[in-house]
Nucleic acid binder design. Sequence first.
DNA 1: TTAAACAAGACAATTCCTGTCTTATTTATA
DNA 2: TATAAATAAGACAGGAATTGTCTTGTTTAA
Lengths: 314, 314
Amino acid sequence: MQKSQRLIQLIMRINAKQSFTVRELADEFGLSTRTITRDLQELSELGVPVYSIQGRGGGYRLLQERLLPPISFTEGEALAMFFACQTMDYFSSLPFGEGADSALHKFYHYLPADVREQIDRLKNKIMFWSPYRLMSAEILQTLLQAIMICSVVTIEYKSSSGISERNIQPIGLYAASGYWYCPAYCFTREDIRQFRADRILSAELNRAIPCRAEISQKSLLDKPNKDDLEQITLELEMTNKGVWLLESNPRFGTFIRHNEDGSGALTIEIAAQDMNFYVDLIWQWGSEVKIVGPAEARAYMHHKIESMRLLYDR
Amino acid sequence: MQKSQRLIQLIMRINAKQSFTVRELADEFGLSTRTITRDLQELSELGVPVYSIQGRGGGYRLLQERLLPPISFTEGEALAMFFACQTMDYFSSLPFGEGADSALHKFYHYLPADVREQIDRLKNKIMFWSPYRLMSAEILQTLLQAIMICSVVTIEYKSSSGISERNIQPIGLYAASGYWYCPAYCFTREDIRQFRADRILSAELNRAIPCRAEISQKSLLDKPNKDDLEQITLELEMTNKGVWLLESNPRFGTFIRHNEDGSGALTIEIAAQDMNFYVDLIWQWGSEVKIVGPAEARAYMHHKIESMRLLYDR
DNA sequence: TTAAACAAGACAATTCCTGTCTTATTTATA
DNA sequence: TATAAATAAGACAGGAATTGTCTTGTTTAA
């Protein structure tokens, strides 16, 4: 193998190991140590971040960084990655938010001029607005670490009824509609609960409590099994505007039955225990969406209206 | 310059041009055409996607793709890019969603084994859930194209009052709380309006109408100047739970005044024309958040309560 | 103190790289 | 149809770069 090709191979090889000795590589490539030494020197001059440690047990190390071998991306891919990283920029509260920022710069810098121009044209024209940056990075980081090493975390959680201390074993983290959520097994409630990360006031790894193996196996994709819960049927009627409002709602959109005059109706099966949640949700649409049944849902609605009257009628 | 280093230079040079002849490069590097031919052959064997066209006007071309020179990323950067691309995956309705997907695979494939393992451990544990995928990619693509070439678009828009046809000149695209929005100059209203992309039923470039230069200059960061609008002061009172609810709301969170008993109050300046919008927003919190003033806001609230009573009391 | 690493110079043998020359082939254009 | 402008690729010799060996140092953990 010629030198020019060997150098590229070397980059990949170095990439795969994080630490190695000259002797090792020399044997691997069937070359003398002198040659490998020279190659490494050259790579170093070309910007590959390796450094050497002399002495027994020494060797070459990658500057705790990893290289990527020369990959080629298509223009579309490069664009996509750029904007993807820009998105991450807004997730600065995430442990690797910082990485995204620096990757973004490297990426941008090495792009061919015309792709860069295209990006410039779009830069201020496309945005992913997200309020996630409001979160404290520290707590997310603790949660993330707990997920990785399957540890229990002691948190202070601020629920509507006040602040309480709990031990939880986090299953994952997900961002949805502007908030970070952490599904976790709660040792107090002895069940899986969703915690909103911004309501966790403090979080600390707690190694005293052994973690539950069956919990650490779970992934975010495992849906809680709601089959065994009592189901009820929610019936709604919508005005024309109500239809328009609900059409784009991922929860209800697909269930709408359209009437000829533009109004609509909707029937959906929900878990009985979620009823109040759904009524509160539907409340936001005011008189555009009417709850027809069940009676308990209507009763809760009446109750809400009554408390509004009391609040405003004096 | 030695061959090994020249090859890396060559990659970058090729990257910058999309098309070139052997002669050109030979002059540029001060080498014979034969050498360059050999180099290109070698690069081709190393996976650089160049191809040649023989005959007059021929030359070498990059396979309509662009290469990136060998960049090195840190482990953190690689992780960030991976998750960023995964995010993009959910934005599959975006024109470059597909690119993100393929970039993701390339990226993942070339990562060193232990970084890959780390990603695997986190893959199902961190997610960015977004409902953007519900959007038709076609319309977003048309809008995006219009933004790039500064063209007018004829759209069918579904507002609450029905479907209408309009000519608009898009300024940008942004994703927020699960929807894509397109701020654009509306030729019908003769003003800038926000269009929700999923309510655009069809979109077609319309080159017949000349675009407005002052509009194509605008970026998403240009905030509409609301200084000249009439301002009113909205006053709210919250229960303990109301405080808890509003704390995490980016619109109100920072303005809360806390009382000793845990309840709170809030004063915020808003544009008079946005009042109904704000009252509708506050409505969702029911009796936890009370509007104290101005009188018009309370009147609108009363009106909403009354129509709810009528709807449910018969 | 020793063994295991890296650091780097010198030099000859060898390999490879490069330019030149050559012959073909392809393709657009006049 | 001829021509010019491209690529494709073989052969070969001279020169340049690469390589291995040998050597002398230095650093560091055990």
